[in-house]
Computed example of a mutant assay.
Amino acid sequence: MKKINLTAMSASELQALKSEIERELNQRSAKLQAIEEVKKLAASKGLKLDDLLAELGGDKSVKGKRELGPAPIRFRHPQNPSLTWSGRGKRPNWMRDALAAGLSEESMRI
């Protein structure tokens, strides 16, 4: 968190900052209170929040970004076998250098 130098601020700037902080704290408190009310209402109706979210289309497990697991190695440096690349993401420097030196991608493919 960025540290604010309060001693360098004028009294009016400090008052404005205090007002902003109080407004933010009130908004967060109201949000937490609303969430608790929704939880209590759902429980009183015999609903689970996960089921309610899925019904409303907000369930992250249903509409979330798919997780990519570790990618298999697809390319290996011809002279240094410890240098590998899965083919995902930015092409590594060793791969660029090898291509510039005249090697083909196919010759480095595993």
Rank of each mutant, 00 (worst) to 15 (best):
S82M: 12
L25W: 02
E67L: 02
D50M: 07
S19G: 08
E105Q: 04
N93G: 05
L53G: 07
E37P: 01
W94E: 03
G58Q: 06
K60M: 06
L53C: 14
T7W: 03
E55P: 02
L41E: 10
T84M: 05
L14N: 03
S19L: 10
G69S: 14
P72A: 14
K18D: 10
L68H: 05
G89I: 00
E55I: 02
A8D: 07
A100W: 01
S61I: 00
M95F: 15
G89S: 07
G89P: 12
E106Q: 12
T84E: 09
K65G: 01
N93W: 02
S12N: 09
G69F: 04
A16P: 00
N26T: 14
A30K: 08
E106I: 00
K65N: 05
M108C: 07
K45F: 09
I73V: 15
L53S: 13
N5W: 02
S10V: 02
L6T: 05
R23L: 07
G69Y: 07
K90S: 08
V62K: 15
E24N: 14
I110K: 09
T84H: 03
K60A: 13
D97Q: 07
L32T: 00
G57Y: 09
D97H: 03
L56F: 11
R76E: 15
A16C: 03
R23N: 11
S107L: 04
E37S: 10
E105L: 10
L6R: 06
R109D: 07
K63I: 12
A42F: 07
E55C: 08
L32S: 13
I35N: 13
L83T: 00
L32A: 14
M9N: 04
L56P: 04
E67Y: 02
A43F: 03
R91H: 04
D97I: 01
K2C: 03
R96Q: 11
A8V: 01
K39P: 01
R109C: 08
T7D: 15
K90G: 04
L49W: 08
K2Y: 08
E105V: 00
V62Q: 11
S10M: 05
L41Y: 09
R76P: 05
D51Q: 15
T7Q: 13
R28M: 11
R23C: 03
L17E: 15
M108F: 03
R91A: 12
N93V: 03
S61H: 12
P70W: 01
L83H: 07
Q33A: 13
S82V: 14
A16W: 00
P92G: 08
D51A: 15
G87I: 01
A16Q: 09
H77M: 04
L52E: 07
A101V: 01
L49T: 09
D97S: 08
L47D: 08
L32M: 09
P78T: 02
R88T: 01
D51K: 15
P78N: 10
E105F: 00
K3N: 07
R76I: 15
R23K: 13
R91I: 13
G57V: 00
S44R: 12
P70T: 00
E37M: 09
A11Y: 04
K31N: 06
G57N: 08
A100F: 04
E55G: 12
P92N: 05
G64N: 11
Q79H: 14
L17F: 14
E13Q: 15
K48D: 13
D59Y: 04
I4R: 11
S107V: 01
M1C: 11
L17D: 09
R28N: 10
K90P: 06
K90T: 12
K40G: 13
L52Q: 08
K3M: 11
S61C: 04
Q27L: 11
